[in-house]
Nucleic acid binder design. Structure first.
Length: 730
DNA sequence: TGAGACGCTGTTTTT
DNA sequence: CAGCGTCTCA
C-alpha cells in the first residue's frame, strides 16, 4: 500500500523561493503563526489572511525544527490542502519537507486501512459514494420486501439522508425522525430494520460510506489508546482550517488526536458556516475552548482582500444575521467601485448580461482566472453555460455533477473495485447486471455464491450459469482473474477493462455512447497519474474530478480559467471579479428554508459569496424564474438583496441605450431596509400553502409567529411566519 | 426473467 | 428534465 499519506503533486521546482519573513504578517497573524505550546483558536473573518497565517505557521514550525512529516493540516477540500502545503514549501529552505494534509475523510481513509483491523476491517475495504450507498438501500429495500405495494416507501435518497443526519448530528434514528422527519414516523420500524441491515451489509462486504470513515476512525482512536498515541505521535502538530464547518465527529477526532499533546490550532469564521446540512454547527467553534482549556483566542479582523465598497456590502449582509460573534472587518483598500446590481427580465437575459460583462472584461485584458460566477445551486448556471458556449467562452464548472457520477464511469470503476475487493457486493452486482441476459434476479442468485466464498472468482467458475449468459460470465471471470493476478499499473488495468467493456458499453448506451466515450478517454488520462490502484479507487469517491473537460491542469494550484461554481465549492477562494447570480426569491434563499436557522445559513452563504470578490462584485437576479413545470413565474428580488441599504449599491445602466430592460436600482430596491413581508397569521385548523411542501393544515399555534402545520405530502413541520413563505388559503 | 416503453414525481449544498 | 418505478411484451 502506498505509504505517503495523501499522494500529491510535487512542489513546483520552478517556483521562486519566497523568504519567510515576519514582516509579512500583521501582529495578530504573527501571533497565530508563531505561538507554540498552547491550543489556539483563530477567528478569522473573510479575507483576513487566514490561509496566509496557516501557511506561515507551517513554515514556522518547520523552521523551528519540527519535521514536516509530523505536521498535519486538515482542510475542507484536498485542493485547498495542496495549495497551502505548496505555498508553505516555498517559504522553507528544504523543499523535501512536505507537510501531510487533506480532508478529514481522506485522513480517516488512510489511517483506517492501517488500523481498521482493530474493528474487524480488512485493509482493502471499499469507499462508497452517495450513489453507492443509495444503491445498497435499494437492494435492501427490495430484499426485505418493503415498499412493495400500497403505501409508498420513502425514497432511497430520503432514507440515506435520514441515516446520515443521525450520524452527523449524533442522534438516534428515533430522534432524527422526531426532529426532522416526523412524517415518516409510520415507517420507523422498517427504517430501523433497514438501518441495521445496511450496517451489517457494509461491514460484511468490506464497505464504508463517508460517515463510516469518520465514525470508525473516531472509534478506533477512542477505543485503542495505542492507536491514538501512534497517530498523535506521528502528527505532533495539528492545524484545522474551516473549523466552523466541522461536525461533532470531526471535532472529536481533533480532540482525541490533539488531546495527546495540545498542539492544535483551529481556524474558522462563524459567519461563514454553511454546512449545517452535514451536521456542522458554528457554535462548535466556541466549544473549542471547553475541549482545550486554556486555549488562546486570536482574532483576525483586517481584510486584505476586498475594496471598502465591497466590504461594506459584505458587512451589511452579515450585520443582519441574528446571532453571531461580534467582529467588524475593516480594510485599508479604500474606495473601489460600488457593487453593481442588475435586475434582469428573466433568466435568459441574466445569462446574456453576465456573458456580455465577462466578454467585456476579457477584452479589457482581465485574466480569465480572475473572474468567477457564483450561485446557490448547481442548476442555476445552466442558461449561462449555454450562453458562454455560444460565445465560445471556455469555463470550468465547480460543484454539481462529478465525472464519477455518470453511469459509464461507475461501470468501469466497478470492475476495478471488484479486483481490489472481491467481496464488494455492490460492484459485483453492477458488473453482473451489465451482462446481457442478466437482470436483478439472476444477479442476486449469483451473488449468493459470492457471499459465502472465500475465493469468489474460483467459486463462480463452478456456477451453473444459464446458457444465454454463460459465455458472458466466463469472459468476465477471465478478465478479473487476469487483473487480479499480475501486479499491474492502474493504466494497464484500465486498458484491459476497457477492452472488455467496450462491447457492452456500446450495446448499453447505444444511443449516446460516442458522447460518453469522451468521459472514458478523460478518465484514462487521470488513471495515468496513479501508481496504485487502491488510491485511484479511493479518489473516485473522495476526490472526484469535475465533469467538465478541464481536469488535469486544474488539479494543482491556480484554477485554469473562468470559474462557474456553487458557493459551497467556492469556499476559501477569491477573484478580482465575482458575479453572484440568481439572487431571486425562491432561488436564493432557496425555497426550502422555513425556520430561522436555515434562513440564517442562506444569508451567510451570500456573505461568503460576496466576500470572494477583490475588486468588483456584480449581483444579478431575474425578475421571473421558470419553475420545472414551466408554470408559475414566481421570483423577484431576493429579500437578502432587497434589504441592503441602497446607497451601497449601484444599478447597472444599459450602455447600448436600452437594449435591456435594465431597471434603476431605486425602482428595484426599496429605499430603506425592507421589513420582511408580514405574513397573515393563519387560523388554527386553517389551510395554508407552502411553495415547497404544498398544502397543509394548521395544527397548532406556537407563540405569535410560529405555527405547526401538517402537510399532506411532507408531514408535520414547525414554521416561522417571518421566514416561511406561507400562503393562507380559505 | 429481461428489456424496453411509458408515465410520474421531485427539486440544495459535499465528503 | 431526469431519473425513477411500473407495466407490457418477448
Amino acid at each position: 500500500m502506498q505509504q505517503s499519506l495523501f499522494p500529491s503533486a510535487n512542489p513546483d521546482p520552478s517556483a521562486s523561493h519566497e523568504k519567510f519573513s515576519r514582516s509579512d504578517l500583521n501582529a495578530a497573524q504573527l501571533e497565530a503563526a508563531t505561538t507554540l505550546g498552547v491550543p489556539l483558536l483563530v477567528i478569522a473573518g473573510a479575507g483576513t489572511g487566514k490561509t496566509r497565517t496557516l501557511v506561515y505557521r507551517m513554515a514556522y514550525l518547520i523552521e523551528q525544527g519540527i519535521p514536516a512529516a509530523n505536521i498535519l493540516l486538515l482542510t475542507f477540500t484536498r485542493k485547498a490542502a495542496q495549495e497551502m502545503i505548496d505555498r508553505a514549501g516555498r517559504l522553507i529552505s528544504d523543499p523535501r519537507q512536505r507537510v501531510t494534509g487533506g480532508t478529514f475523510h481522506a485522513m480517516a481513509n488512510v489511517l483506517l486501512r492501517r488500523h481498521g483491523h482493530h474493528l474487524g476491517y480488512k485493509p482493502n475495504f471499499t469507499i462508497l459514494d452517495r450513489a453507492d450507498a443509495e444503491g445498497i438501500i435499494n437492494l435492501l429495500k427490495s430484499s426485505l420486501e418493503m415498499g412493495a405495494t400500497g403505501k409508498r416507501f420513502p425514497s432511497k435518497r430520503m432514507v440515506c439522508n435520514l441515516f446520515s443526519r443521525g450520524v452527523n448530528k449524533c442522534q438516534t434514528l428515533n430522534e432524527v425522525i422526531e426532529d426532522q422527519y416526523s412524517h415518516l414516523a409510520e415507517y420507523r420500524d422498517d427504517l430501523a430494520k433497514i438501518q441495521e441491515h445496511y450496517h451489517r451489509f457494509k461491514f460484511e462486504h468490506g464497505l464504508m460510506d463517508y460517515d463510516d470513515l469518520l465514525v470508525k476512525f473516531r472509534q478506533v482512536l477512542s477505543e485503542f489508546p495505542e492507536v491514538r498515541r501512534e497517530v498523535a505521535g506521528r502528527f505532533q502538530h495539528v492545524l484545522v482550517d474551516e473549523y466552523q464547518d466541522t461536525n461533532p465527529i470531526q471535532a472529536d477526532i481533533v480532540r482525541l488526536v490533539g488531546g495527546e499533546h495540545g498542539n492544535v490550532m483551529v481556524v474558522g469564521d462563524d459567519s461563514q458556516s454553511i454546512y449545517s446540512f452535514r451536521g456542522a454547527d458554528f457554535r462548535n467553534i466556541m466549544d473549542f475552548q471547553t475541549i482545550f482549556p486554556g486555549a488562546r483566542l486570536i482574532r483576525l479582523e483586517e481584510n486584505y482582500r476586498s475594496t471598502q465598497a465591497i466590504l461594506a456590502v459584505g458587512n451589511a449582509i452579515i450585520d443582519r444575521a441574528r446571532e453571531k460573534y461580534e467582529k467588524r472587518l475593516f480594510t485599508s483598500i479604500a474606495g473601489g467601485q460600488r457593487p453593481q446590481v442588475y435586475s434582469a427580465w428573466d433568466e435568459a437575459t441574466q445569462a446574456r448580461w453576465v456573458a456580455e460583462r465577462i466578454a467585456e472584461l476579457l477584452k479589457q485584458g482581465v485574466a480569465r482566472e480572475e473572474i468567477a460566477v457564483l450561485f446557490r445551486s448547481g442548476f442555476h448556471s445552466y442558461k449561462l453555460e449555454l450562453e458562454l458556449n455560444n460565445r465560445q467562452i471556455g469555463f470550468e464548472k465547480r460543484g454539481g455533477l462529478k465525472l464519477t457520477e455518470s453511469a459509464h464511469i461507475k461501470d468501469v470503476v466497478s470492475y476495478l473495485r471488484v479486483v481490489s475487493n472481491p467481496h464488494d457486493h455492490l460492484s459485483w452486482n453492477r458488473v453482473l447486471l451489465l451482462l446481457d441476459k442478466v437482470g436483478p434476479k439472476t444477479a442476486q442468485q449469483v451473488l449468493a455464491t459470492v457471499r459465502g466464498a472465500a475465493e469468489p472468482l474460483a467459486a463462480l467458475r463452478e456456477y451453473p450459469a444459464g446458457k444465454s449468459w454463460r459465455g458472458g460470465l466466463l469472459k468476465l471471470l477471465d478478465l478479473l482473474e487476469t487483473l487480479g493476478a499480475g501486479d499491474r499499473q492502474p493504466l494497464a488495468v484500465f486498458d484491459a477493462v476497457m477492452e472488455y467493456y467496450q462491447e457492452l458499453f456500446e450495446r448499453i448506451y447505444h444511443d449516446d455512447y460516442p458522447l460518453r466515450s469522451r468521459d472514458l478517454e478523460q478518465m484514462r488520462l487521470l488513471v495515468g497519474g496513479y501508481t496504485d490502484l487502491q488510491s485511484l479507487i479511493d479518489d473516485t469517491a473522495l476526490d472526484p474530478p469535475e465533469s467538465t473537460d478541464e481536469s488535469l491542469g486544474g488539479r494543482v494550484g491556480k484554477p485554469s480559467g473562468l470559474i462557474l461554481s456553487t458557493i459551497h465549492s467556492a469556499k476559501g477562494l477569491e477573484w478580482d471579479h465575482v458575479f453572484v447570480i440568481h439572487l431571486a426569491a425562491g432561488r436564493f434563499p432557496s425555497c426550502q428554508p422555513f425556520m430561522r436557522e436555515e434562513w440564517e445559513e442562506e444569508r451567510r452563504m451570500l456573505y461568503v459569496a460576496a466576500t470572494r470578490a477583490r475588486k468588483m462584485l456584480y449581483l444579478t437576479y431575474p425578475r421571473e424564474v421558470q419553475t420545472f413545470d414551466k408554470q408559475a413565474a414566481a421570483g423577484g428580488i431576493s429579500p437578502f438583496l432587497a434589504e441592503l441599504p441602497a446607497h451601497l449599491l449601484e444599478s447597472w445602466e444599459s450602455r447600448s441605450g436600452g437594449g435591456y430592460p435594465g431597471s434603476r436600482l431605486e425602482k428595484a430596491l426599496p429605499a430603506g431596509p425592507a421589513p420582511a413581508k408580514v405574513a397573515e397569521v393563519p387560523a388554527l385548523g386553517g389551510k395554508v400553502r407552502h411553495p415547497f411542501f404544498g398544502e397543509g393544515k394548521v395544527e397548532k399555534l406556537v407563540g405569535s409567529r410560529t405555527v405547526e402545520v401538517n402537510f399532506a405530502r411532507h408531514g408535520r413541520k414547525t414554521l416561522h411566519l417571518d421566514y416561511a413563505r406561507l400562503e393562507v388559503l380559505d
